[in-house]
Design a binder for these strands. Structure first.
Lengths: 242, 242, 242, 242
DNA sequence: GATGAATGAGAATTCATTCAT
DNA sequence: AATGAATGAATTCTCATTCAT
């Protein structure tokens, strides 16, 4: 399954570039500046720290004290801002996924052709992993297992991604760009699945990349879309799959 | 990510049929019958129980006593057969994944064309989920996400699936069945990813199936392979990327 | 055990009437009005709030923040006025019990007969519960049971009630109104105990009152005194308690 | 309020005698003897320890580890036998109060006159405090405050004591032994209250006893009943109930 | 005076693992 | 082999109290 963070939508592949995380810009001599942090800032700091620690140790392997240590605060303070560990994960999910889906919707809404849209989507998803791999780890690996049982409505939210992409496909069929004998609701799975597994594999470090990482992602995005659109067959099958 | 259980390879889709799990056929008046279980049987019973409980509660959420209760044995006994909780999960993985990879290899080795092989693979994977959804849950959700960090060699084992499928694709290219401008190492991801997400979605209950469940899986397998081979494009692009 | 609040002594039963507590007359648009509260007023506000919250949740179950919330102030402010939670309870006890004992002493000092005095005492005690049940709850259930071990001198203060009543009894014996073969020091226990348990039972809601609550308390006060003076025996009830 | 433990009913005052608690008969060289303790015994040991520690420190002031230390077991074991601290208190209440009420009922059912019955009740209650003061402390001071809010049905159970005694009074009225112009439902409060406060005062150490403690209790029981039956009035003590 | 963010000691509870029987 | 009592380290969560503004 795929779910990703902070996805500014841009139409090209250009966004696949470096960024990095520096969670706690430690100890800048903070006369008044630091104490004036609003509660919201502290809250954000905790979330950022949590993402990083969750990514490193997994949700269950993370102690509240780990998060506090990473954020360089007293761990009681975490409870000032969050009811418990689960609420932190919850917040991460809600915020990040919301942003992600918005980006997807923006892509779906622009006027371009299906192939361009899918390319954009692939680029966003893959670049997201490139720039914020911890977020992706957390979103992919930690959130669902924990909440799957607890919250069916959260799954509903996840399903939104599928709906957005299925709609793009449906539109492509309507325009005659895509074949109509495959259900968009199924086809979208294959597309998402292709991207998902690439990301997952990167997270799991199954894929080793030599050379330019950015180039790899670009190639991968192109490949996924090309394959999705044109198929793997050498032969051009004139006839519909009877 | 995909990894699945007890996959007797058969070449057609026919294997997608019911089976079911009844791990502890409780309270059969077991005068001597039960006591005579050999140690190996007890061990197996524990594994079966563990799979079911892991599937239900997740690895971390499962207590040894839960497994023991499900197996209807004293929980101290679990430690006779396994060093600790992790070893149970380990055993599940090793056994099931080994069987699975064997099935995949058998498919890869038979003499048929690429499309047939891929169809078999899709069938095996999807039917596996159909007949032993708990296994799939455990393999997908629990094992890797638990042990990922601990055991890199285990990931190597997972990678085997990709190699087997990439080899099938390579063979297809060599035979001229598949286009050659896409790297098999990348393409295999898209294929596996398509299957994976279908299974995952079923596990997560994102997909609702009306009517015949078996028919759904057959259709899905066909769709995945069709899409993978022929692509989504409405246009038949005549010329090879020469 | 009995210990009660704000006991203006009046000689009759008439004081058993309604009153009620509305501690925080919330949100009166308090531009300056509220800010101009003197420190003493704030302190009092905190005490009133504490009584109510202690009554509802018990001392141990009450957080400083609960008190602050009830008083509609910042909880840090509580620490301006009180060293800690215990000091709040302490203050409640000292103020209320002091007032109560004063009322008892006034009754003891007036010139009437024993029966009248006891009737007054019963009336004061029972009406106190009627008008300020939270105070009684706190005094009965929270204070002693919390501080009992910590502070023996406080018990001394509680004992004062017994001495006052025993003195009334002694005086009655000296006047020939009461029999002399029972020690006043023991007898006073029975009298106080009778009242105490009535109050306690009301607090615990063991007694359900139908109809007029005030009438119930009057009847109860009369019954306690009548029984204490005349006994339960059928024999020798020469005159009815007119 | 009064509620008391292990009250073997005997008709005279004779039961007011010493006993004491020795909860953990420590370290008797226990080859097999000790390990063979059944779970029930350990459970009982924990309860006994809990009573003592609760009595000393109060429910809220008692840590599970205190109980475990007193019982000389690992504190995890407490959780083997009880879900949590509250369940321990619960168990104490249910067991002890049940026994107590049974004793009361037995007294109520025997064929003697009202005064004798009341004397028995007084004796049981007072001697209970004498022999097991910790139990009384716990029952009186700890249980209700904790559970008052949680469990209204428990209060119902407490009310049973009142009903039993009110019934004795009603019977006395029917037989013509007691005056009929006082409601038994109210009168029983005064009787119980008298006993209660004596016990409470002892617990609070408000009363100091010089000389023989047993004699004190006997005198107290007689006084309470005498006063309850005959009243405090000097007038009309003419004839004993011959 | 007033605020509420920050701190951290303290207590409850869980549960993998050991071990005597 | 089988049992389940016993252990205690590890962790979460609470909340009184302090403190900078």
């Amino acid at each position: 399954m795929l779910r990703l963070p902070r996805w500014k939508h841009e139409s090209s592949m250009s966004e696949i570039q470096q960024s990095g995380t520096k969670p706690s810009t430690k100890k800048k001599s903070l006369g008044a500046a630091d104490k004036s942090r609003s509660g919201a800032e502290k809250r954000r700091l905790i979330i950022e720290s949590a993402i990083n620690v969750f990514a490193e140790k997994g949700y269950h392997g993370t102690r509240i004290s780990d998060i506090a240590k990473h954020a360089e605060i007293a761990y009681g303070l975490v409870y000032h801002y969050f009811k418990n560990k689960e609420e932190i994960l919850d917040t991460i999910f809600l915020e990040r996924w919301g942003e992600f889906i918005s980006a997807m919707r923006a892509i779906a809404a622009d006027g371009r052709g299906v192939e361009d849209k899918l390319l954009s989507i692939a680029a966003v998803i893959l670049s997201a992993h490139r720039t914020r791999p911890e977020w992706v780890k957390v979103l992919i690996f930690e959130i669902q297992r924990t909440q799957r049982f607890a919250d069916p409505e959260r799954m509903e939210v996840v399903g939104e991604l599928f709906r957005v992409i299925a709609d793009i496909l449906r539109e492509g069929q309507a325009r005659g760009e895509l074949r109509c004998d495959l259900e968009p609701d199924l086809a979208c799975y294959i597309f998402i699945g292709g991207l998902d597994i690439v990301v997952t594999s990167r997270v799991l470090e199954l894929i080793e990349i030599e050379g330019d990482e950015g180039a790899y992602y670009v190639r991968m995005a192109r490949t996924v879309v090309d394959l999705f659109i044109n198929g793997m067959s050498a032969v051009r099958q004139g006839s519909e799959p009877s």
